[in-house]
Write a protein that binds this DNA or RNA. Sequence first.
DNA 1: GCTAAAAGCTAATCGGATTAGCCAAGCCTG
DNA 2: CAGGCTTGGCTAATCCGATTAGCTTTTAGC
Lengths: 187, 187
Amino acid sequence: MPRAGLDPAAVVAAGAALADEVGLTNLTMGLLAERVGVRTPSLYKHVSGQEDLNRRIAVLALREAADAVGGAVQGYAGRDALAAAARAFRTFVVEHPGRYAATIGVEPSGPDDPLATEGMRVLGAFTAVLRGYEIAESDLDHALRMLRSLCHGFATLQAANGFQWSADIDESFEWLIAFADRGLRAL
Amino acid sequence: MPRAGLDPAAVVAAGAALADEVGLTNLTMGLLAERVGVRTPSLYKHVSGQEDLNRRIAVLALREAADAVGGAVQGYAGRDALAAAARAFRTFVVEHPGRYAATIGVEPSGPDDPLATEGMRVLGAFTAVLRGYEIAESDLDHALRMLRSLCHGFATLQAANGFQWSADIDESFEWLIAFADRGLRAL
DNA sequence: GCTAAAAGCTAATCGGATTAGCCAAGCCTG
DNA sequence: CAGGCTTGGCTAATCCGATTAGCTTTTAGC
């Protein structure tokens, strides 16, 4: 019986991929074990359980989201930066619904928790976008929360297939970006 | 052994209440059975299983949300209506996080599904709000999605304790309402 | 080559969901 | 008011996924 050569990172990556494919709620230890070519109990050599797995997937997701959003914003400012960030975020959520779902509801245990660190990086990327607008210091937090709510809400609704009707979803999202941009410029 | 006098509605109502208390993910058939004073298998005389229970809780939640938002809007227009609707929605989600969570990810089986009906009622309430603004027909759907994303995103982030930092959450929400109002009036 | 930690495995336990099958309560009819 | 049917509840049993226990083999380091 040759070793599978697993390590926590490989297990987590496979778990995240599987969550994207079958949905986080259908991600089972048995399914993941099968995917990585190992018997179920062997997974416990790398992650301490389902909760731990979920946490690690969440950290991975936040890191990737932060990279995506942060990278997309590079070199842009104002409306272009806003559009790039929003698009990158939504693309990430829609393409990786399972791992993004893992980030919802997990709470960092403290300021040193990687979960907190990566979460801050995502916020940092959006904060960078806001710096391109003339926003009063007192409005910054609120604007950040607005942006976050908008992106999170739209992306999760789309990922959950929550938009049934007529209008084109991409078009709605672009409309949303324009709406937010006008509002932010008017502050 | 006297009868408990249960019926599907009572089971669903208890399930929704329990979900709000302990979180939807911790809602277990055993816990619910205990709550309604019956042994676990007896629940299956009223709901066909966990998935069915979840669906029914979702229908209940959407009905209540539609009632809350629709009722709050009565007699108001424009910014007042927007504020009333948004506040009612957020209050509902924050006070009933469990049952609202049940609405996420469930898909109506068809146009006659009560889930679809009640969902439409919620949308209808928000659509009524938008009628108080001068919005071009072509912008209506987008504006509705924007409003929905904003409310859904903010409420779920708050319910998941997703806002860690400094600024006051209620204040942010009021800021959000004002932001949306200005944007909608500028259309 | 020797050894100990690491990584797999099988077997067993546990808990929650669900099903099978039995029984009593309540209602409706004659 | 008894008989019988339907309904709601119960116990026992099954199933499945998570997790733990304990054994074995690989393999890095000496």
